[in-house]
């Protein structure tokens, strides 16, 4: 479980996060949603320890990340898996080497054992035949799956995903969403996903934190987001014509 208390973050004069309080639960897919510029990515980078923050705290299973020694921070980071928006695969390594990378850095496994583990997770993300390809030879969806495989290869306790299905077609996006949800349940990890995709919200949003201008505007789940009368949330949710029409149809049916 990750607990965030009164988190503030500024860049010069710009106050980006203005006191966020929330928690992300274990074994669930936790979504941070909001419009572009609402502070989602900054929030995620603060959670990952990539950005220092001015005020507040972030606790990983009761341990305040900022107060840990450098060595302990390093140990903690080894328990974190991250899927970046652009996948962030290492260009100079093959897909298999990318997946083996965390094992090479943090374990004493023999090369064959590492390869076996990498093959296992690549199979888990349905990429059995792509081992020797370079990242540049893989499609966007494949790159995302490799990034997921790399993130979970070391059995992380926490999985973070920054807009994992951005730039993907709806079918592949759904595959990626479901894969993340399955992995979260299978490994019982705390997953935090940064998204502005309403399909993801409907598919996998077990816990949703809605950000607006650096503040938590709403918190709930995929079951409650369509029932809320919080204007900020409804503005966002029904900004798409599809959802607007679905809502109108439901209201018509109910009346």
């Amino acid at each position: 479980m990750i607990e965030v208390k009164n988190l503030h973050k500024s860049f010069g004069e710009a106050h980006i996060l203005k006191g966020i309080n929330t928690s992300f639960e274990k074994g669930k897919t936790n979504l941070i949603i909001g419009q572009s510029g609402s502070g989602k990515t900054v929030f995620l980078k603060c959670l990952l320890g990539l950005y220092d923050y001015e005020e507040g705290s972030i606790e990983y299973d009761g341990e305040n990340f900022a107060n840990l020694s450098e060595d302990k921070k390093r140990d903690m980071r080894a328990k974190i898996g991250m899927v970046f928006q652009g996948s962030a695969l290492f260009d100079s390594l093959t897909i298999e080497e990318n997946v083996m990378f965390p094992l090479r850095m943090f374990t004493k496994l023999k090369k064959e054992e590492m390869r076996e583990r990498a093959n296992f997770v690549l199979k888990r993300v349905n990429l059995e035949d792509a081992h020797n390809k370079m990242p540049s030879e893989a499609s966007g969806g494949m790159q995302k799956r490799v990034a997921i495989a790399r993130a979970i290869v070391n059995n992380p306790k926490y999985l973070f995903c920054d807009e994992p299905n951005s730039g993907l077609d709806p079918k592949t996006a759904t595959v990626i969403d479901n894969l993340i949800k399955e992995i979260t349940e299978e490994y019982n990890i705390t997953t935090v996903i940064n998204s502005h995709d309403m399909n993801s919200v409907m598919e996998i949003g077990e816990k949703i934190v809605f950000l607006k201008e650096g503040l938590k505007a709403w918190e709930g789940s995929r079951h409650t987001i369509f029932k809320t009368d919080n204007e900020v949330v409804t503005d966002f949710v029904y900004s798409s014509n599809l959802f607007k029409k679905v809502r109108e149809a439901i209201l018509k049916e109910n009346s």
């Binding site: 980078k45 990952l48 320890g49 990539l50 921070k73 390093r74 140990d75 903690m76 980071r77 080894a78 974190i80 991250m82 970046f84 928006q85 652009g86 962030a88 695969l89 290492f90 260009d91 990378f101 965390p102 850095m105 943090f106 973070f160």
Partner: peptide, 17 residues
């Protein structure tokens, strides 16, 4: 620089490297 732009450096940092 390309590694910075494509978040590969962030990926290393997140892994604790």
């Amino acid at each position: 620089g390309t590694m910075r732009v494509t978040e590969q450096i962030d990926a290393l940092e997140v892994m604790g490297i």
